[in-house]
């Protein structure tokens, strides 16, 4: 993604600075100040400084932890705390500077809790699957029966997030939910649609697969086809409002269209891996992002 963006910006002769969070305090530095209600500051990249007034936009991708060398007298815990502080400085910078930021890290948080995000999504008018979060094996078993044995399970946070179908073989290990809350969802049949929003632009991609989680179709030995699609205007509008409400300038929204034509929404991703989709479909998602970054305004 980052390489793609850099290549596109170079092709347009746009000036940009690539900051790899791992090199913070070594390869680059950030300084900003607040006075009279305004924000001023500068970025050091290598030996040169760039003032915030020269900055049109910032694109935030996945942030790695800064690689600060561990000092001789420093414990692992102290070193970890120092790395955390450095990381928080980068995040605070991206959350504060008064330019277009795609997207501010503060808005990434909704993705850290799927049950939270599901409630948010429902308020924007999307259908959401029946969901149970439980530490009680009996409840999980009851839910499985209530949903006609068509249930998936997945993590609640963004960690280890792989969707699996629940089967009777899972009953033997259901006791494990006592140790960690687990999310069970009614399986919704239908066609997956990944919608990328970039500012006010929308790029729906339809994915046809028999895999439970299309991202891992190859891993599961299932086929996968992807093509550009169109959405009914009211669904498209809902997607844009959801992204806006979630504070995301760019997002990846996971929808599924049921056989009855109902649109379910499972998730909204704050840093979507759009190149995977545009490679298959030729959709100009990245170009729209580059346009937005160059424009510096929605």
């Amino acid at each position: 993604m980052t390489a793609y963006l850099c290549a596109r910006l170079c092709a347009r002769d746009e000036r940009f600075v690539l900051l790899d969070a791992r090199g913070y305090l070594r390869d680059f530095d950030l300084t900003w100040s607040l006075a009279d209600g305004g924000v001023d500051g500068a970025i050091r990249a290598g030996a040169s400084w760039v003032g915030l007034d020269a900055l049109r936009s910032i694109c935030v991708r996945w942030l790695d932890l800064p690689e600060l060398p561990r000092e001789a007298a420093e414990t692992a815990e102290e070193h970890g705390a120092r790395v955390h502080e450095a990381f928080q400085a980068i995040v605070a910078f991206a959350d504060t500077v008064p330019v277009l930021v795609v997207s501010r890290p503060a808005s990434f948080g909704s993705n850290s809790s799927k049950p939270y995000q599901q409630q948010l999504v429902a308020r924007y008018g999307f259908s959401v699957p029946r969901t149970l979060v439980t530490t009680e094996p009996e409840e999980a078993r009851r839910f499985y029966e209530e949903c006609d044995r068509r249930v998936i399970y997945k993590s609640l946070s963004h960690r280890r997030s792989i969707v699996r179908r629940m089967t009777p073989e899972d009953f033997d290990r259901l006791h494990a939910v006592r140790h960690c809350p687990t999310q069970f969802q009614e399986y919704v049949p239908g066609v997956d649609i990944r919608v990328h929003t970039v500012g006010g632009d929308l790029f729906p991609t339809e994915i046809v697969t028999e895999a439970t989680d299309y991202r891992y179709a190859g891993h599961d030995g299932a086929s996968r086809e992807m093509r550009a699609a169109t959405l009914p205007p009211e669904v498209a509008e809902r997607c844009l409002r959801l992204a806006d409400g979630a504070g995301l300038v760019m997002s990846g929204i996971d929808l599924r269209r049921s056989p009855a034509g109902e649109y379910y929404c499972f998730e909204i991703n704050p840093t979507p891996g759009f190149t995977f989709y545009q490679r298959y479909t030729g959709q100009r998602i990245g170009e729209a992002l580059v346009d937005l970054l160059c424009r510096g305004a929605l």
Binding site: A35, G37, G38, P98, S107, S110, D244
Partner: peptide
């Protein structure tokens, strides 16, 4: 209430809104 703004609030757009005063 279903329209409790806290239930809708998850941050804000990174839309470059001017912060309180022009950037100097």
């Amino acid at each position: 209430r279903a329209d409790d703004p806290r239930l809708w609030y998850v941050g804000r757009p990174g839309d470059g809104l001017p912060l309180c005063a022009p950037v100097r």
